[in-house]
Simulated assay, not measured.
Amino acid sequence: MKTKILMAALLSGLVMTAGAVQAQQERERPDFETLDLNGDGALTMEEMQARGEARFAEQDANGDGALSADELSARAADRATAMIERFDENGDGLLQLDEMPTREERRAARMFDRVDADDDGTISAEEFEQAQERMGERRDGRRGDGHKGRG
């Protein structure tokens, strides 16, 4: 019985860490100017690939061209620490179940952040309308040639 509880706890921790990793990756998305390495106002496939190579190099602490378990663990530990700092409502340095946002709450927060274009913590009628227009354009694009969007 204790083994099952321990395994459930470990699995739960892995799932939560995966959520933290995803959230952290979303926050680390570079802006256009960062990706546009030559500053010409357009992104090439080479510039996009260069970003991926740079991120790999940042993680490759010893510069051997490969990521070891230790290098990956260090990154996971940094992300876990950031997750605790972000969600630890009572300030005890630990995450209790009630401090963990649900998947739906995380999704809703991401959607809110995308619509709140001026980052003022509220959605104006104009921001709401712009979001609806973007969603309509995406929906119409998927219907148009059958190759856009998912699938």
Rank of each mutant, 00 (worst) to 15 (best):
N90Y: 05
D78Q: 15
A74G: 13
L94Q: 14
A69V: 13
M100Y: 07
E71A: 08
S68D: 13
D64G: 06
L97T: 10
M83Q: 12
D92G: 03
A69P: 01
L97N: 01
A80Y: 02
R79A: 00
Q96A: 14
S73W: 11
G93L: 02
A66K: 11
A74P: 05
S68L: 00
A76E: 10
A76M: 14
A82E: 14
D88Y: 00
L94D: 09
D70W: 06
A66R: 14
D70E: 15
E104R: 12
E99M: 02
D92C: 05
A66F: 11
E85V: 03
A82T: 04
A69H: 13
E71Y: 09
D98K: 10
L97Q: 10
N90W: 03
N90P: 01
T102P: 00
A66P: 00
F87G: 01
P101S: 07
I84Y: 04
P101E: 02
E89V: 06
D64A: 00
I84V: 15
R103P: 00
R103F: 15
D70V: 06
L67A: 04
M100K: 01
N90H: 07
G65I: 08
T102N: 01
Q96S: 15
D64R: 11
A82W: 06
S73R: 09
R86N: 07
I84F: 08
E99I: 10
A69Y: 13
L72D: 02
L94F: 12
R75Q: 14
R103E: 12
A74T: 13
E85R: 10
M83A: 11
G93K: 04
E105Q: 13
E85L: 09
T102Y: 02
D92R: 02
R75W: 10
M100W: 07
D92A: 04
R79Q: 14
D64Y: 09
A77I: 03
F87Y: 10
R86Q: 15
G91K: 01
G93T: 05
A74Q: 15
A66T: 14
N90E: 03
R75Y: 11
G65D: 02
T102R: 01
A76T: 09
A76C: 03
L97P: 08
T102H: 03
N90Q: 09
G65L: 05
D70H: 11
D78Y: 00
Q96E: 15
R86M: 06
I84D: 00
R79L: 06
E105R: 01
D98C: 07
D88M: 04
G91N: 07
E104F: 01
D88G: 00
L94M: 11
E104A: 12
D78M: 06
L97W: 11
E104I: 13
S73V: 01
L95N: 09
L95R: 08
N90D: 11
G91S: 05
P101M: 07
E105N: 02
R86W: 00
A76S: 10
A77H: 08
S73D: 12
A66I: 09
P101D: 07
S73Y: 12
L67P: 02
R86E: 08
